[in-house]
């Protein structure tokens, strides 16, 4: 007499696999396509205004009339640090008479201090001057481009308590070399 087949064997659940091949085909095509068009480095641009002195004697004249109420806030980048000045006064380090914000002991520029000082200044002047958004940048001839860009960043806005405050977004690069 033959053995009766076991009932347990009959009800074994069968594994049903999803047919993923169409999806795989799609992904294999899509991934190289997106990879080839992906931009991993994002570029930006800093908009500059024309150096005023470069536009000739006419601009000089009109500038002369308006400058009675202008602030002409200027940052001068030197090898020793930042000098802050306006049309009336040059701020100096009260102790040594050196730059307003001297370089740190490791030779790095103190951008944070620059932003903070400009922020305090911005609170004081608010909008009494017509050029209260403008800042003029000067530098000695051997200052590196990256330092200039970092200074522009520091002068444009400040991050405080998780908020971003606008400082002096209109950056003008002065035409003279010191």
């Amino acid at each position: 007499m033959a053995y009766k087949p076991s009932k347990r064997r009959m009800y074994e659940p069968e594994y049903v696999g999803l047919n993923l091949f169409p999806v795989m085909n799609l992904l294999v095509v899509l991934i190289p396509l997106l990879l080839s068009t992906a931009t991993f480095v994002k570029l930006g641009v800093i908009e500059l205004n024309l150096p005023k002195a470069a536009s000739g004697p006419l601009a000089q004249q009109t500038l002369g009339k308006e400058s009675q109420r202008s602030l002409d806030l200027t940052i001068t980048i030197t090898g020793r640090g930042f000098y802050l000045s306006s049309s009336r006064i040059i701020l100096r380090d009260p102790g040594s008479g050196g730059p307003t914000i001297p370089v740190l002991s490791n030779g790095a520029y103190n951008y944070l201090e620059l932003s903070t000082q400009l922020f305090e200044l911005k609170q004081k002047i608010s909008s009494t001057f017509f050029d209260s958004k403008r800042i003029i940048l000067q530098a000695t001839r051997d200052i590196e481009y990256q330092i200039l860009v970092d200074t522009i960043d520091a002068a444009r806005s400040i991050h405080m308590d998780g908020k971003q405050y606008e400082l002096f977004p209109d950056v003008v690069i002065s035409a003279g070399i010191i």
Binding site: L43, G44, V45, I46, E47, Y145, Q146, L148, V149, D150, I152, D153, R156, S157
Partner: peptide, 11 residues
């Protein structure tokens, strides 16, 4: 190129 925190897109 130098790096900066600007967000203006190039044109």
């Amino acid at each position: 190129l130098p790096s900066s925190t600007v967000e203006t897109a190039p044109e």
